[in-house]
Design a protein around this nucleic acid. Sequence first.
DNA 1: CATGAATGAGGGTTCATTCAT
DNA 2: CATGAATGAACCCTCATTCAT
Lengths: 218, 218, 218, 218
Amino acid sequence: MPKETFKNISEEKRQRFIREATSLFAEKGYYGTDMGELARRAGVSKGSIYNYFDSKEDLFLYLSDYNLGLSRKAIYGTLDPDWDIYKQIEHIFQTGAEFILDNQDTMVVYLSMTSPGMEQFANARAVITEKFTADHLKRELAKGIEQGIVRADLDINMTAFIINGLYILFVASLSTAYFRIRLKEYLEMDEEINSDNIQQHQAKIIEHIHKMLRPPKG
Amino acid sequence: MPKETFKNISEEKRQRFIREATSLFAEKGYYGTDMGELARRAGVSKGSIYNYFDSKEDLFLYLSDYNLGLSRKAIYGTLDPDWDIYKQIEHIFQTGAEFILDNQDTMVVYLSMTSPGMEQFANARAVITEKFTADHLKRELAKGIEQGIVRADLDINMTAFIINGLYILFVASLSTAYFRIRLKEYLEMDEEINSDNIQQHQAKIIEHIHKMLRPPKG
Amino acid sequence: MPKETFKNISEEKRQRFIREATSLFAEKGYYGTDMGELARRAGVSKGSIYNYFDSKEDLFLYLSDYNLGLSRKAIYGTLDPDWDIYKQIEHIFQTGAEFILDNQDTMVVYLSMTSPGMEQFANARAVITEKFTADHLKRELAKGIEQGIVRADLDINMTAFIINGLYILFVASLSTAYFRIRLKEYLEMDEEINSDNIQQHQAKIIEHIHKMLRPPKG
Amino acid sequence: MPKETFKNISEEKRQRFIREATSLFAEKGYYGTDMGELARRAGVSKGSIYNYFDSKEDLFLYLSDYNLGLSRKAIYGTLDPDWDIYKQIEHIFQTGAEFILDNQDTMVVYLSMTSPGMEQFANARAVITEKFTADHLKRELAKGIEQGIVRADLDINMTAFIINGLYILFVASLSTAYFRIRLKEYLEMDEEINSDNIQQHQAKIIEHIHKMLRPPKG
DNA sequence: CATGAATGAGGGTTCATTCAT
DNA sequence: CATGAATGAACCCTCATTCAT
């Protein structure tokens, strides 16, 4: 829902604007973000922002969609639907972690919606956002059961709920202040989280999910 | 860090104030909460709030501590340390869910801290808050392994991280707008979440964790 | 205009109250002074202050009168009316400087009245305060002229105006932030003003006034 | 330190704003001045004031500088440096008095800084403000002594201190409530001070200073 | 006479949004 | 399409004063 004007400006200007807006919302939160500061950082005038978007709320929703789209593209755009579910989950966590570490702010904008006082945004986006991953996971789980590679006694809905829940928890742990601290406390890490030292932990989460799915040997 | 004045007022007035403040912060979030509206709702004057607390920030931190304390007391105050870890986890999820459904707002205040723009609060409380559950879970896991009732090849830190992560996810799903919608989407629920219809789902999450811990039969 | 209550409390308590109130008004100015802080510093309750005085304004006026009285007593209580005007002026400057350096805050309260926004206080006290010194100086000048020790062509009113003006300027230079800085700048002083290093300058001012009065030698 | 915005508005609007702000600060003092009332009087919105200046403090400092500048320009912009010190002093008092009577509020803003509770402003401006006149007077006194038209036994620093002190006293007597009352009391004036009836008194002060400088005839 | 909790009008400042240029 | 000055409703917090105990 950007206005026409936003589509008419140069790609470079548009990208810079999106980048700075995302970064500012991530840093300060929705309420903490000042449209004036955003204008300054993005190198446009305050008036221009309102030529691009109807309101702060509108801008925020657009950024949510946009960033979710980026993340989706990074993950699902490179996911081969023929892979089995084990490979897909590994791919989702690996590509997802990589993307988040390179684009920390994108996840934070998404997580803003889950905060108290953001009910309007939750109502506007939660269903549509969650339906995508829920459907995908459920479909792949069903397929796996059919193929005999996933244990048949699993509750598909709940399993999908847990897998995606762990994914959210994981990326939140890579990108938000509180959950970063929490991760370091639980995993007893001393240094800041980076793509190197996170590898082993990531592997364990994936392994945990794989175990959850694997049929009892027999 | 309430001031002396807050300790000297009647228990009833104090409870009402805490209740209304928690409720308002839960509804509107930290930034959306207006001290004037709080005064009105709590039936005190604006000035009085500042006789009780130094600042909005100070009040918020107190409420976080207070509500976390309530939740801890409900869960750990009724937990028998002699129970094995399976029983303890069951207890934590059951008592926790019950408490949250009766006191939806308390969790929401905690979750506020995890939001973008709340870094100051995250820094002030994350370590101290998370250390408690992290230590408890790790201790019980180690004990379980020693007793031979938990599989010995588990990574204790990561397992604790996952168990508590699922707990956070679960109670968030019972109390915040976004995660309530998400839960209903994943679990394909039509009615509002309540203590009755949540029972079966809760049991599955507990069962998932139990499976994760149980040693391979031999 | 303190209320009866103020007269009934112990001399010690009353003195401490006056001292702390004077000190606080001197430090923060009339508007900057917080009755709550005053209560704390003086070791009484806020309610008590209003048992002693009708209002902040009332308290301030009382302190002005009280401190002016102290200063008058220190200077005029030790001044021998038989001294000639030269000796009297010397005495006023010396005793005044001594008193101010020992009781910096008293002068500051007086000077508050001369500030913008304090018109109400100026109207309440300026005439009565200034009449005293004006009358005294004019009387002594007239006497001096009669005695032939003061030049007869002086304008008595203007001379009194100047002498007292220099006195005000001088004690302000010993007690208020701005005029202390000004004095150090003009007199090129490096160290803080104290009773030792001020002596020589004081002598020069007195000498200046004496010269002003002395009849041409003939 | 006005912001760019203040420089970009029309000269007329800017002048009106400065005039009204000066007038209000003069009337109510720094603490008594309400930014809302200022907005109303100046015909701008409260928000606009904060587009012009960072804060009330900042605005006040700017007004001080601005008004001091006006006064300096009126006095020193019309002073011929080739005049001897007697003529210069006469000029300073005459032009100064005229300026103050036409612009009463400007002096009052300056005098605000000398009040208790305004230490921050005193520290920010006293040295720079006083250095200008101190240096000028000292330079001219030294020159006068060299030329043989000023008595050689004068203490230059103290003499400058006294001359400028009398100037401050004089202009304060023309512009502030308290000192206006004091002047009328000392000089036994019945009517309000105006440029006509002040002439004779002004002449006497100038004459007093001239006498102070004139070498003993011989 | 002392206390200190309660009050609420205000005060300085912020900020999303508008609109004339 | 861009600009940035203008707006004014809010918002957090202060503080002189009151009054029940």
